[in-house]
Structures are given as C-alpha cells and as structure tokens.
C-alpha cells in the first residue's frame, strides 16, 4: 500500500528556551531529559523521525502538550525546528528561500486549523478564494474555483455569509474548502474537529472520509482523540512528551502496543472496527463453515462467527482461497481485548 515517500523527517528537535541552538550544540544534538530540565529548556519535539507516504492518512495522536501541534508546525515551517532534517519530495525543506517556501505553501500545502482561522472580515466565498487571491489569480477564475470547493463541502448557497454567522461545523467546512482550493498535494489538518460537538464531529469525520475517497490526498492529521485516529488513519503516530512513542497501523497499535502508554489508549479502542480477521485468524481447519474475508474488520463478521456452530473459514482478499479459520472464542477475545472475561480470569 505505501506509495512514494513525500515527506521525510529525521531527528527533528524543537526546543524552547533562551538559546535553543546553543543548548543543542552543547549537548551534541541529543540532550537528556535531565539536561532539559536543569537548564530550563522545553523539548516540545524530541528526536522525531518518520516518513509520510503518497496517498496515506497519517495521524499524529497525543494528549495536549505532547508536541503534536509543534511537530506539524515544524513540518509546515510555521515554526522552524531547532535541529533535524526535513525533506519534501527530496527537497530540503529547511533550506528553502522565503520565496520557495511561499511557493510551496501556495501550490503544494493545504492546512486546516483547530479554531478554523477564518478571516472575520471576509465572507465564505472570499475566505475560500483567499489562497487563490494571494497567488494573484484573476477574480473570475478564483470565484469559479472557490464556488466549486464550497459546493464540494456542502455549503453552496452560503457564499455571502460571514464566519460569525455560521455554526462551528460550517465554519470548519469553510476552513476545509479553503485549504483544498489550491488543490494541494499534502493536506495538513491540525485537530480540525476538536472544537466541535461530538455529533457534528462524527458527521465531519464522515465528510472527511468522503472527500478523501474522492481526492486521494496525502494527509497529516493531528488529533488528541484515539477513536478519531483509529477511524480515519492508515497509520497512527503516538506522541508523548515530545517523542514519537510508536508509529504503526491502528491494528498493530491495538494488538502490539509498544508500551503501557500506548496500551492505555488501545485498551479503550473500538477493536471490532480496528482489528481485521486476518490479524487474529488461526490455521485453516476442515470443520470450518461459511467464509469471511481476511481483510474484514471483526466487527463486521462478529455476528456471523458468534452465531455459527463452529469455526468459520477465512478467505484471502479475493475471496477465492481459504487462508485460515476463526471461531467464537478468538473473536470474543479480540473484541474485549484486555477487558474480556478470559483476560480477567487469567
């Protein structure tokens, strides 16, 4: 599944304090937590390395203060990292001139903000057309393109409304339309739905998936909500105290958490929607009845397996070859994870 690497980050550090660069030099680029504390520096991002692949949804998850927002601001160069390397399609992001950086932002990057970041003095149309306007695109064209984007996010007819006259969900739709107006290659979303009510949030998540199914962008998405992360992500990077603790698929996180911190998140995750049949199936048995595909999430086959009288056969993605079997106990254990009756008994 992974496409080409679009963004490559190596050993990113973002340190706040009196003289961050001098501090990093004194500690050979790898200060300890003790050193940070002693000298009164804050390591918002510490030694983070990862790649973002073409077309994937990479979600960076962490609690507030974990450094996830700082990280996305480093990548977009809203904040420059203290040390480290960043490449975008092989170009060194940190060596870009002002002009080149603006150029990349104008054509390649799009970003959505937690508090929407809409311009209060412009109506919906003017907000969405804003990135096109600063590029100097002619009025007729930018209105045309902005209108298309507004229709895409379902706000057609409200072009002349001002942000303050819209609900939070609607405002974020404007934010999304604006970030997509330049047809970016990479789409950054910084806690886009965190400021919204739970119901609206769920609706916007579906909307997001709908858009992505049409647009196939490369996405870096920040959230503090593990459930949201597992619902939307191809891969999730979990951050704690500035460090990337684990970067893996949701399934791997749930099944093989790297440490207790990740396990704590994984415990409450909706496993039935994360874990696929293939990840927990056993060896094929002849007694198996019916068939479920190995790529299916266990939630979607649970009823079939739990009501079956014995193990159910598992087929490969094409549905032609039997690759394993699954039974009631396995499914139950997987769904309830550490919380099921077996676990308690053990």
């Amino acid at each position: 599944m992974p496409g080409d690497v679009q963004i490559r980050c190596r050993n990113l550090w973002k340190v706040f304090g009196a003289d961050p660069r001098g501090f990093m030099r004194r500690h050979d680029g790898r200060p300890t937590a003790q050193a940070l504390r002693d000298e009164g520096y804050i390591g918002a991002v510490q030694d983070v390395s990862f790649d973002v692949h073409q077309g994937e949804i990479l979600i960076i998850m962490g609690l507030s203060g974990s450094g996830k927002s700082t990280l996305i601001r480093c990548i977009t160069r809203l904040n420059d990292p203290t040390t480290g390397e960043m490449e975008y399609e092989g170009r060194d992001l940190l060596k870009l001139s002002e002009r080149e950086l603006i150029d990349i932002r104008r054509h390649r990057f799009g970003m959505v903000f937690q508090n929407f970041g809409l311009l209060p003095h412009r109506d919906v149309l003017e907000n969405v057309a804003f990135p096109l306007e600063v590029q100097g695109i002619a009025r007729a064209e930018r209105v045309d393109r902005a209108k298309k984007m507004i229709d895409l996010v379902g706000l057609g007819g409200r072009e002349s409304y001002f942000p303050r006259e819209l609900s939070g969900g609607q405002q974020q739709r404007v934010g999304i339309a604006r970030s997509l107006a330049v047809e970016p290659d990479i789409w950054f979303l910084d806690e886009p739905f965190s400021a919204l009510d739970p119901l609206i949030r769920a609706e916007m998540q579906d909307e997001f998936l709908r858009l992505q199914s049409m647009l196939h962008k490369t996405i870096v998405f920040i959230t503090h909500d593990f459930e949201e992360a597992t619902k939307l992500a191809d891969r999730i990077g979990i951050m704690k105290d500035g460090r990337m603790v684990q970067l893996a698929t949701p399934e791997e996180l749930v099944l093989n958490p790297a440490d207790d911190y990740v396990a704590e998140f994984a415990k409450n995750a909706p496993r039935e929607r994360i874990v696929s049949v293939g990840a927990i199936m056993q060896t094929p048995t002849d007694a198996a009845l019916g068939a479920v595909p190995m790529t299916a999430k266990i939630g979607s086959v649970a009823e079939q397996v739990l009501t079956a009288d014995g193990p159910v056969a598992v087929t490969d993605a094409s549905g032609e070859r039997i690759v394993g079997s699954i039974d009631r106990a396995t499914v139950t254990a997987a769904i309830f994870g550490g919380r099921g009756p077996e676990a308690r008994a053990a």
């Binding site: 809203l78 150029d103 104008r106 970003m111 970041g117 311009l119 600063v134 590029q135 604006r178």
Partner: peptide, 22 residues
C-alpha cells in the same frame, strides 16, 4: 488569533500580504 495568522501563512501570503490582507 494565531490560527488566523497561520492560515494566512499557509495560504502562501508574503509578509506584506499577511499584514494588509490578514
């Protein structure tokens, strides 16, 4: 609000555009 400023930066504003338009 910092979101507004950052939104302006990410829209590709030059410094001048950031001041006068945002």
């Amino acid at each position: 609000s910092s979101d507004v400023v950052e939104a302006g930066q990410m829209s590709g504003c030059t410094k001048r555009q950031l001041l006068w338009k945002v």
